[in-house]
Design a protein around this nucleic acid. Structure first.
Lengths: 183, 183
DNA sequence: CGACCGAGAGAACGCACGTTCTCCACCGAA
DNA sequence: TTCGGTGGAGAACGTGCGTTCTCTCGGTCG
């Protein structure tokens, strides 16, 4: 059935609007207007707004990690792969609609009131950290460098979002290079 | 007049509630209930909720940076002072009501809709970064290490908030130590 | 052809909340 | 004592929004 199409369209609109303007300032009616999916259908697909938010974060998580992995896999050298993470952050930060990390923003907006959103955010960050750990292991490095690399990446995301600059990615990459050499 | 007292009480309540539950889920009536300051008075002191939010962030910024500086100043050695920043982060993360960085959270919640809040957040982060730069200069280090130290601190704040653990502070401190040695 | 079923448009409902207004009790001055 | 004004409690107002309901219409099956 094309309810799967409607679902995709709803999620497309939700992602664009929630990410761009924040969750709370976007009404279900805005989603309907932007997606062309009627309210009735929206509530059939997602029994409440919170579930739409959850689905938005979930789908974005899958896509985000896949895009990152695709970029990283283009490199052969295991150490280059680690640094490629920061290169990818830079291209992400430079995208026109970049407005910071969707999960960090969602945590700031809903972390105090929605446990389900908190779970999504923790899941996403854990997955990202695990992915870094894989890359670290693949490069034969001490597992202890995973934490610092993760913190550098998180700091870069937050700072790029707040300042609207891509520079934090290069800074983080440079710091990562030093850490890998010294650690 | 004790309008200055009322102002302090209002800001005390605002800080407790806004930080603990997020800005949007706290109503002006909640502020009144928690502060004992009547709505009429609240609106005399702050013409709109947004200005109360602004004042909350501003006062918290002053206090936050003073607490940090006080802790750092207890150390003599300039390099120790830099590391003391991360020690202080750890005690901050361990406070009972810690819910992440108030400015990062505020940016996530209101960054898309309130330019005044964005200005507060940028101002706070710039001040923190400038303070780190001072410490770096005082230790006779290359100014280029300021950025990485800042990113480590930001990453630690965000991660401590999301995971509810103090561990990111120690991780960041250790990474900072390595960077200072290797840079 | 006619009756039913699904879906869309959008009105309606209930509630929350930012902001303002009303009413009244209190207190200092003439 | 009376008058004016200050401030508090809380009702009232307007709006926005999450969610549900109604009405209508097009299509499909008997």
């Amino acid at each position: 059935m094309d309810s799967v199409v409607a679902r995709e369209q709803a999620l497309d609109a939700a992602e664009r609007l929630f990410y761009g303007r924040g969750v709370q300032s976007v009404g279900m009616d805005d989603i309907r207007g932007a997606s062309g999916v009627s309210l009735k259908r929206l509530y059939q697909l997602f029994p409440a707004k919170e579930q739409l938010v959850e689905a938005y974060l979930e789908r974005r998580d899958a896509r985000w990690r896949q895009r990152l992995a695709e970029h990283v896999q283009r490199h052969e050298d295991p150490r280059e792969r680690l640094l490629a993470v920061f290169d990818w952050l830079e291209t992400w930060f430079g995208e026109e609609d970049f407005r910071g990390c969707a999960w960090i923003n969602a945590y700031g907006e809903l972390g105090a009131t929605s446990p389900r959103v908190v779970a999504q955010v923790r899941g996403h960050k854990r997955a990202f950290r695990d992915y870094l750990a894989e890359l670290v292991a693949g490069a034969g490095l001490d597992a202890g460098v995973t934490g610092p690399l993760f913190l550098l990446a998180e700091g870069a995301m937050v700072t790029a979002g707040i300042t609207g600059s891509t520079a934090p990615a290069a800074e983080a990459r440079e710091a990562a290079r030093v850490l890998l050499r010294a650690g």
